[in-house]
Design a protein around this nucleic acid. Structure first.
Ligand SMILES: [Mn+2]
Ligand SMILES: [Mn+2]
Ligand SMILES: [Mn+2]
Ligand SMILES: [Mn+2]
Lengths: 217, 217
DNA sequence: ACTAATATTTAGACTAGCCTAAAAATATTT
DNA sequence: AAATATTTTTAGGCTAGTCTAAATATTAGT
């Protein structure tokens, strides 16, 4: 049986591994979890003892099959609850993350699976992130980052990379949401900012913003 | 901000006060919470310091307005989630308590209120227990205990007192559920057991069982 | 290759929430 | 009203999860 804290570590380590595709080091985890490096070291030892990851002093850490499975279960719950909040309880996509951080630790598997069915087995959450199924499997969507699109090219927004409240609210304010058709009108060489077209509106976004938007052509 | 443990204490103290209508003592709480009396003493001091209840050494304890409000908020959440699980996720009334014990601690008030609306503002949970509204108000139902009914009298089952899994499963097995019309056919003087009629079935139940069933005439 | 900077781990301390055992207060018998 | 039994509190200890400060290992710069 895992504690909430252990579950959080596994989840964040999983996310970091996905993002960096390499062994994850102590400081990176500390930043994600918002704890001190020494606390992380303690927890890594504990998780290694519980056979959830491979830990070698000074060498970073890597989830094993066991740990990956647990991490995916937490991620599944997080994303199902976010979907529930948006689809059924009229929440906005920028209001659900913190609540899902609590709900993701509810233990009943039956609850998770019934929730999944109630929502009609959604495959992505409100931020376009894939929801693992009961077995932990999910399809990686073939997407392209907006910043890699060429001039005159277009695509439909299917996901955001950064899903902080502030970024999501920024997008909402600009009327950018999942499903929007986005077309690149101009790319500024100097700072890689983009001029884009959504519906009848045209405006500029920074490279940073473009880096966090994923499209399907 | 209250911890889960503090919330549990407030909730159970509230329930005990409702049940016994008197100051609640340490051992009673210890039994309910399933902890040792010494642990209870520690917690009572803490809750008194946080201005949630009145505690005098050796004299028992009594929630103040503040504490009652918090207790009712936890009870509201518990019963709303139980209702959600039965109404929306196809759970049985004997499967929901333990899950609601976890869900009742999710902090977002907006979540609670949206859930309430999603369920169409239910006034009782799956066990016939009243659900406090946003302000903490609820109507006490005028009910009569089955063991106080006379021969030939009848009523509709509207609530159970004991809502342990085992008792609820016992009722399910006998096809007794909220909404049933129950008629007293015979009362055994020796042990106060009852012969009752539900639909076309007639059978016997012990005084203990009758004590835990509440009817509306 | 040495030195300086950075990253990581260890050592020791703290809080919340629990425990056991002993002490103290209260309640019940005789 | 004593003696006994019960209840409650205190004292001291444990674990999980965090922290700070110090020690140690690794990496980078010259
Ligand atoms: Mn989230
Ligand atoms: Mn999400
Ligand atoms: Mn319950
Ligand atoms: Mn209930």
């Amino acid at each position: 049986m895992l504690t909430n804290s252990e579950e959080n570590y596994l989840k964040e380590i999983y996310n970091l591994e996905e993002y960096f595709n390499t062994e994850i080091n102590t400081n990176l985890i500390a930043k994600k979890i918002d704890a001190k490096a020494s606390s992380v070291t303690d927890m890594l030892k504990k998780l290694a003892n519980k056979d959830l990851l491979i830990y070698q002093k000074y060498k970073g850490v890597k989830l094993n099959t066991n740990g990956k499975k647990k991490a995916l279960s937490v991620i599944r719950k997080h994303r199902l609850w976010e979907t529930f909040l948006v689809e059924k309880l009229d929440f906005n996509w920028d209001e659900v993350h913190d609540i899902a951080e609590e709900l993701e630790h509810i233990r009943s598997e039956k609850l998770t699976n019934h929730l999944d069915a109630f929502l009609n087995f959604p495959v992505v959450d409100p931020h376009g992130h894939p929801i693992p199924n009961k077995e932990g499997d999910f399809k990686k969507m073939e997407t392209i980052c907006l910043s890699n699109l060429g001039i005159k090219q277009e695509g439909v927004l299917v996901g955001v990379k950064n899903s902080s409240d502030t970024f999501l609210r920024f997008l909402s304010n600009k009327n950018i949401s999942i499903g929007c058709k986005i077309k690149v009108v101009h790319k500024e060489e100097f700072d890689n900012s983009l001029s884009i077209n959504i519906g009848n509106n045209q405006f500029n976004i920074s490279e940073n913003v473009a880096n966090n938007l994923y499209l399907k052509k």
